[in-house]
C-alpha cells in the first residue's frame, strides 16, 4: 500500500497531454454544437402531428438513446467501412457516435420543453397573425429554452466527459494520450490521476458558469 507517487514522469510529457486536451475540446465543441442544433430540428420533427414525420424521428431517437455510445463508436469505426466502403477515421467515428447520441438525447429535451409551454401561448401568437414558425421562434422557443437550460447544460458536461470514449478507437484525446504515457513510463496510477484532475479543473468553472446562466435566464419569472 505504499506507492511512490511520481507525477514528474507524467508532466515530462505535458506536450502529449496538451495534444490530448486539444483533442477533447475539439470533440466537445463539434459534438455539442452539432448535437444540440440537430436535436432542436429532431425535437421539432418529434413534435410534429404528422405520422410520416413523427414516426421516423421517434425510431431514430429510440435507436440512439437505447444503445451505448461506446458500442456506436466501435460500430461506426469497424462495421461502417465494411458495409458502405466509406473510410472512417477514429475522429469521424467518435464524432458520429457522440453527436448522433446527443441529437437523440436533446431531441427529447427540446420536445418536452416545447410541449411544456401552454396551448394559450400558441393561441396568443396566432391571434395577432403570427405563422406557426413565427410563434415557435418568437414565443414558444424562448420560453421553452429557459426551462430546458438545466438538462441541456448537464448534457454538455456529459459530452465533455463522454469524449474519453473516443480512446477506444485510439483518437488522441486526453485519456488516449495518458494511456500512451502510461505504456511508455509504466506509471498508470499517476497518468490516470492526472486525467481525472484535468477534467475536474476544466469542468468545475464551466459548471459554475451554467449556474450563473440559469439564474440570469430566470429573471422574468413570476
Amino acid at each position: 500500500m505504499n506507492h511512490n507517487w511520481n507525477f514528474a514522469s507524467v508532466f515530462a510529457y505535458w506536450e502529449v497531454l496538451a495534444v490530448g486536451l486539444w483533442g477533447t475540446l475539439v470533440l466537445f465543441v463539434i459534438c455539442t454544437g452539432l448535437g444540440l442544433s440537430g436535436g432542436l430540428i429532431m425535437g421539432m420533427l418529434r413534435y410534429s402531428k404528422s405520422r410520416w414525420v413523427n414516426y421516423p424521428a421517434r425510431l431514430y431517437v429510440e435507436v440512439f438513446r437505447n444503445t451505448p455510445v461506446l458500442v456506436q463508436i466501435i460500430w461506426f469505426f469497424f462495421a461502417l467501412p465494411v458495409l458502405t466502403g466509406i473510410e472512417v477515421t477514429p475522429f469521424l467515428a467518435a464524432i458520429l457516435g457522440i453527436t448522433l447520441n446527443t441529437i437523440a438525447f436533446s431531441a427529447e429535451v427540446f420536445r418536452g420543453g416545447i410541449q411544456s409551454i401552454e396551448r394559450e401561448q400558441w393561441e396568443a401568437g396566432k391571434a395577432i397573425g403570427m405563422s406557426y414558425g413565427q410563434t415557435m421562434r418568437r414565443v414558444i422557443l424562448p420560453q421553452a429554452l429557459k426551462r430546458m437550460l438545466p438538462p441541456l447544460t448537464s448534457r454538455g458536461i456529459e459530452v465533455f466527459k463522454m469524449s474519453t470514449l473516443a480512446s477506444v478507437v485510439a483518437y488522441p484525446e486526453t485519456l488516449q494520450q495518458a494511456k500512451l504515457i502510461a505504456s511508455y513510463e509504466y506509471n498508470p496510477i499517476e497518468a490516470y490521476t492526472v486525467v481525472a484532475l484535468i477534467f475536474f479543473v476544466v469542468l468545475l468553472p464551466m459548471v459554475q458558469l451554467t449556474y450563473v446562466l440559469e439564474r440570469r435566464f430566470g429573471k422574468s419569472d413570476a
Binding site: 394559450e120 393561441e123 396568443a124 397573425g129 420560453q143 422574468s220
Partner: peptide
C-alpha cells in the same frame, strides 16, 4: 394558412386568461 394569418392581423382577440407573453 397564409390568408388566415393575414385575416387575423385585421381582427383583435382578447382571451379569458390574458395569454400575455411572460418572457417579454
Amino acid at each position: 394558412e397564409s390568408d388566415l394569418c393575414q385575416l387575423r392581423t385585421r381582427i383583435g382577440m382578447v382571451f379569458q386568461h390574458f395569454n400575455l407573453f411572460p418572457h417579454k
